[in-house]
Design a protein around this nucleic acid. Structure first.
Length: 493
RNA sequence: GCCCCCGUUGUCUAGCGGCCUAGGACGUGGCCCUCUCAAGGCCAAAACACGAGUUCGAACCUCGUCGGGGGCACCA
């Protein structure tokens, strides 16, 4: 008998969408697709203080760009609305009330000041900073009276004082903690809004979530969450805590400063940045999927579809993984090479446009084919092939003379080459290659030397796609003009 | 300080008691190809944290040590 699988990606809109959350979303998505289950997007915005209005948009934009489509969510609705926790306040309140009635929770009137003082004392005595249970011992009648009088209060969970709580994590097996080390954590804040510990559990229940796949920063609160679920008498979801992403050095998780540092080195952990840097979804997906998991013993390049076919929770790795930006480049380049020419051209169009060029269709296709194996990110196509779309090139004069040749010798060679090309009634550079090689031999130069001069003259670069391919894209008149111009420069040197 | 988790080359990983003289990938070095740059092909260096135990046999099981990480909020 199979329970229907439902998973959810539940980010909080407090910051930018980064590769860590993208990977969590990906694994959730993969499991859902693998078994034909549902994938829900839920926004956990109970933290009003840290709420950022742009964050939700960036999350949605990031997921869409990556192609991780959801079946239910705040933007598209679904049978379990609301999908934003601030829109479900009453639901959480009712549930908190039920917990109080079942003697699993209690109102607490302690002030923030008292709590802070208490914590300080605990730390001073090197004890665990747990709530001391003052209000837990309050007479319920008195508590009810104070609430009726409008006194500010929070609702705390009544954690068992004795025994141990054991929870099963799919990747780690059983995890046990002694209940006396667990805090009477707050379920509902004094402003009436639930905290994650309550809201997420209630929502997972409401939405019939079968597998909770989330970051392992939640591992330490897992027993608490299991206790809440059990207090309600609900069936527990399968818990699966993903490994953490560590900074490239492997020492600690990425901090804000590390993220900034990465930017100065030309990297980023943020999805939107990666997109703007010219990474493609296929590359990013492949990259993050393999940090903390393996999909196949003998293969490591996968499309989303292939990942779905091979996804297996059992192949997730519980140990933390250091981020490796070189691999992002590797996977991105690999996936760019796998694109069809038309597809690459379509993706390159906005990149060239952004750089100020007006790429037309047919030529863009040719350029795409020419740069395809030479670029790691889409943006690199501009450096490698921008000259295809420029009216004029301005080669650095010092790059013009052939290796080991004087400017005069180079000018002569260039003129001779130009004459060969100009003499052809039908312009076909590739067909002229043999003749040009013969020319080089006649002059006593290596072909590469002659081609080097031509490359500088025609492309304005010392590095470019293959000369003859490039010439075909550029066209006769432009080539002859550029060669002539370069010769003139050489004559004056 | 307390609680929890993790530990195979520099990095991501395969390995689930004999298939391991530990496999793949990134990166690194070399060679080949070559008009530049790439891509591609071939080769190389590089790891089971340590110590006990269990067993005929341990990277795989157990315990300890050490190392790393996460959490300890009216944040998520």
């Amino acid at each position: 008998m199979h329970m229907p699988v439902t998973v959810r990606f539940a980010p909080s809109p407090t910051g930018r969408m980064h590769i860590g959350s993208a990977r969590t979303a990906l694994y959730n998505y993969l499991l859902a697709k693998r078994v034909g289950g549902r994938f829900i997007l839920r926004i956990e915005d109970t933290d009003q203080k840290r709420f950022s209005p742009e964050a939700e948009a960036e999350i949605i934009e990031g997921l869409r760009w990556l192609g991780l489509d959801w079946d239910e969510g705040p933007d598209i609705g679904g049978p379990h609305a609301p999908y934003r926790q601030t829109e479900a306040r009453e639901i959480y309140r009712e549930h908190a009330q039920r917990l109080i009635e079942k003697d699993h929770a209690y109102p607490c009137f302690c002030t923030a000041e008292r709590l802070a003082r208490m914590r300080e004392e605990h730390r001073a005595r090197k004890e665990q900073p747990l709530y001391d249970g003052l209000c837990r011992r309050l007479d319920p009648a008195e508590a009810a009276q104070r609430i009726a009088a409008g006194e500010r209060h929070v609702i705390r969970f009544k954690t068992p004082n004795e025994g141990t709580t054991t929870v099963t994590d799919m990747l780690r097996g059983e995890i046990s903690v002694e209940n006396k080390t667990l805090d009477d954590f707050i379920l509902v804040k004094s402003d009436g809004l639930a905290l994650y510990h309550l809201a997420a559990m209630v929502d997972d229940r409401r939405m019939a979530v079968s597998h909770v796949i989330r970051g392992s920063e939640w591992l330490s609160t897992l027993p608490l969450h299991a206790l809440v679920v059990r207090a309600f008498g609900w069936r527990e979801p399968a818990w699966c805590h993903l490994s953490l992403f560590l900074k490239p050095s492997g020492k600690g998780k990425m901090s804000k400063r590390d993220a900034t540092q990465a930017m100065t080195e030309g990297h980023s952990i943020f999805i939107r940045d990666l997109k703007e840097m010219g990474y493609i979804p296929e590359g990013i997906l492949n990259w993050i999927a393999l940090m903390g998991a393996s999909f196949d013993e003998a293969q490591d390049v996968f499309t989303l579809e292939e990942m779905i076919q091979r996804f297996d929770l059992g192949h997730l790795n519980p140990s933390p993984a250091a981020i490796n930006f070189e691999k992002a480049d590797h996977f991105n380049g690999t996936h760019i090479r796998r694109l069809s020419t038309d597809d690459l051209a379509a993706r390159l169009a906005p990149v060239f446009a952004k750089a100020g060029y007006a790429p037309d269709g047919a030529k863009l296709r040719q350029v795409a084919a020419a740069v395809q194996v030479r670029i790691v990110t889409l943006d690199e196509a501009v450096d490698m092939g921008g000259f295809f779309f420029r009216e004029n090139v301005a080669p650095d004069p010092k790059d013009l003379p052939g290796k080991g040749l004087t400017p005069a010798q180079s000018a002569d060679a260039l003129r001779a080459a130009r004459e060969i090309l100009a003499a052809k009634p039908a312009f076909d550079p590739t067909a002229s290659e043999e003749e040009l090689r013969a020319l080089a031999e006649k002059l006593g130069y290596k072909p590469g030397v002659l081609f080097g001069i031509m490359r500088s003259a025609i492309t304005g670069q010392t590095v470019s796609p293959p000369l003859f391919t490039s010439m075909e894209i550029i066209g006769r008149e432009t080539i002859l003009a550029r060669m002539g111009a370069a010769e003139a420069v050489l004559r004056k040197m």
